[in-house]
Design a protein around this nucleic acid. Structure first.
Lengths: 348, 348
DNA sequence: TTGTAGGCGTTATCAT
DNA sequence: ATGATAACGCCTACAA
């Protein structure tokens, strides 16, 4: 009448299985956990049969309580709706799932209170580790203060936290982008940065100046603009620059959203990209190659960031100490927005 | 020397707090859970002080085990990297966090095995409910079979599962989009659909035919194309149609990605949008208004989908039975791709 | 080769 | 107004 055992509240426990199999719960546990090779075949078989018939699955709450490890990883993200974080999330979840781990995620909007709340919630849930992304914008003292130094944490992106970190050489990446623009014969290269207090901005801004210096171009303060690295903010800043009558023939934005906003402002003023102004962004969002003209950008292996973070956490959690920081390569994706005849890619 | 209590493995428990406060652990638990208003002020105070000093936070594993509720919600998504799901995820997480819940998410790529795996993992973790999104593509029998009928599940989008469902009237939405194209004077309206077996496709395709009928346009089989509703698939299908020399002056795609792919193919063939062909998509991804020309689309309150799903689950989980299905309004966002002088919006 | 008993941290029941 | 105790489901010494 009811062949498939229902998955109601009253789910079977080790005890149920033990009774059904006619053994003790110890035996069930050991068979299921692969301990003790020394078991009668018939015993094992009876246990497995009972498990199948009852559709038994261990209660991970109980397991977690007992073993104080939950095979769960917390992912702290500013905003899952921001394209930059999709691939991180995807990489993390894929890898976690493949390793038998689960991912809990929280959005912080870079709000300190929310960051702390997330940290607390995750700690309460006894996650085995936490991936902390997208900061380097707030001062992150509060994070360090809330976490024990021995916590299993990995940061992604520019941070100053005492944990293994994953990312790219932001400074060199931006410098390479500037070099790319210079190679196209651009000499008046402006930059749309973030806010001066952001660690991320500081790194990339240093790269911008490096790039100019190496290209033999003098840095001009009036061509270095600050934004929030959002679409609207990029548009605004560009608008300002145009109406101010500033003279430039190229733009490097520290973020694709800002670059897209800038392109929109340029279009509205009838300024042609790349003829009049070449544009290159940063992060290579999936949108970027869809706009007209396709936006050049600096690509990072973001999926790998998430995957690597999980691997580091799992390794440490399982006793293998691999907990090192990692630097990934970046790649300039030259498209029509910065190169008359686009298409080539330069990796580092 | 060490003012901030460290959060090492040896975290304080109720017992620790009890000792520190000079009361029993029962008292601690009751004070903390707001039971028993009948407590000496001094007792309460001592407990709260101890909690603060020790930085005590309950172990949610133990709580979950005891109360068999985890304040955790599972979010099953085909692919978090697909723009359609960002706002769902965001809406779900925001709402969950505000209600004191946590979200676990898994990507399934619409693979049956992965869907089942997710379901099992979430059940093992004793989540209080599951949000199941983006199906109506697979036959979802396997999902229903794996879940107890009393499970706290909410589906988002076209499904045939015996659970409360959230979405829009897909059929009416597409019909409205066809009406919009007809209003622009378009008579040869083609459609880029999904696969015939997809529930989602069936609904929207019915809407396409409804729309044609109401506009007094005869349905022509050769203008109804099937795709995977991806960028590349949309591009391919469009390519095919063009080289086949088919005659059409408008396109409705059942998904923005497909529409964007189609626009790319049109551009490559020098066909002007909207002059030669008007295009409208579906889902109104955030990308869509960034391309040139901006893509018209049907917008759904996707953030609300996620939020509402969480609210339904939480309500049911906490005993209030609100578990009803919900239909949200859609809105035609007419932009330059379908309207010479774009800008107006028609909501329903 | 297998079973018994205790405890992970919490809350609920029953006393006092 | 507060405490002792048991139980949630599991794993793991320690015994046999």
């Amino acid at each position: 009448m009811c062949p498939t055992p229902s998955r109601e509240a009253g789910r079977p426990t080790v005890k149920t299985v033990a009774e059904q199999a006619g053994v003790s719960s110890t035996t069930v546990s050991r068979v299921l956990n692969g301990k003790a090779d020394s078991f009668t075949e018939s015993t094992k078989q009876r246990v497995f049969d009972a498990v199948r018939e009852l559709d038994y699955r261990p209660n991970s709450l109980a397991v977690g309580l007992r073993k104080s490890t939950t095979r769960t990883i917390g992912l702290v993200i500013p905003d899952i709706a921001n394209a930059y974080f999709h691939q991180i999330a995807r990489g993390a979840e894929d890898t976690a799932m493949a390793l038998g781990y689960t991912v809990i995620f929280c959005n912080t909007d870079r709000l300190v209170e929310k960051e702390l709340l997330c940290l607390d919630v995750l700690t309460d849930k006894r996650v085995d580790g936490i991936i902390f992304t997208g900061a380097g914008i707030n001062n992150d003292r509060h994070v360090a203060d809330r976490l024990s130094a021995s916590a299993n944490v990995v940061t992604i992106g520019a941070h100053r936290l005492p944990f293994p970190s994953i990312g790219v050489d932001d400074r060199a990446a931006i410098a390479a982008a500037v070099a790319h623009l210079a190679e196209q014969g651009r000499q008046k290269i402006a930059c749309i940065g973030g806010q001066a207090s952001w660690l991320l901005h500081q790194e990339r801004f240093a790269g911008y100046r490096d790039g100019l210096r190496k290209a033999g171009i003098r840095f001009r303060r009036e061509l270095a603009w600050n934004s929030d690295l959002t679409l609207s903010s990029g548009q605004e800043v560009m608008e300002q620059a145009i109406v101010s009558g500033l003279d430039f023939d190229a733009i490097i934005a520290f973020d694709d959203y800002a670059a897209l906003g800038a392109m929109r402002a340029l279009r509205q003023h009838g300024i042609k990209v790349p003829t009049d102004v070449a544009v290159i962004g940063c992060d290579d969002l999936s949108i970027s190659e869809l706009v007209e003209p396709p936006l050049s950008s600096i690509a990072f292996p973001v999926y790998e960031f998430g995957a690597a973070a999980v691997r580091i956490i799992v390794a440490k959690s399982e006793g293998k100490h691999s907990g090192e920081s990692m630097q990934f390569p970046y790649e300039i994706r030259a498209r029509a927005s910065s190169a008359p005849s686009a298409g080539h890619s330069a990796a580092v």
